[in-house]
Amino acid sequence: MPFVNGARLTTAGLFLLGCLPAAWLLGAAFTGQLGANPTEALIRQLGEWGLRFLLLTLAATPINRFFKWGLLLRHRRMIGLFAFVYAVLHFCAFIWFDHFFDWGELLRDILKRPFITLGMAAWLLLLPLAITSGRWAVRRMGYRHWVTLHRLIYPAAVLVIVHFFMLVKADLREPIIYGALLFLLLLTRLYRPGGKARQRRVSG
């Protein structure tokens, strides 16, 4: 492959991989594979993919540290942006297919229903991270401030898990599994022999 840069190929491959769930959902929606209540299925699937990418973003550092596998870390920015994009699609699907752009009703829901309030809060925490995901932001803000800001991913992920817990009716199995994964990922942050982890982080 003389004309193709290997790193770029990996990036492109990961990008396509990230688009796959959305493409699959779109195809499934058009061919009626989403079951009897496709709207609900779509909203839920998009939310769940947002959460999965969020956990994958959080897994980048520990996987690099403990398994010496840096692929995720090198592409963490993109994975994090996928989390945000799926959260945006999730929110858009909710505004469009569930509320039909009834903004008054939407505002009432955000204020009155705790699970929506928390979803919204999580989304608002992810928003500045997506905006400042570019290298320019690191330069403008300074690395220290940028890192501090991007720690918002922790409370955001916790809020998403609580969002999930609050929306299920009786069967807590799924939110428990995702919650346990998040707990594990957060736990690895407490383990810092030598305090060198910070320097090993790549910006972005």
Binding site: A29, L42, F100, E105, M166
Partner: peptide, 23 residues
């Protein structure tokens, strides 16, 4: 009277309502 977690003002008719039908 809303369910604490979701509004009961509207409903989606299964099978009949598409993505683009308001509830």
């Amino acid at each position: 009277v809303d369910h604490p977690r979701w509004s009961q003002a509207r409903e989606r008719r299964i099978g009949e309502d598409s993505f683009f039908t308001p509830k």
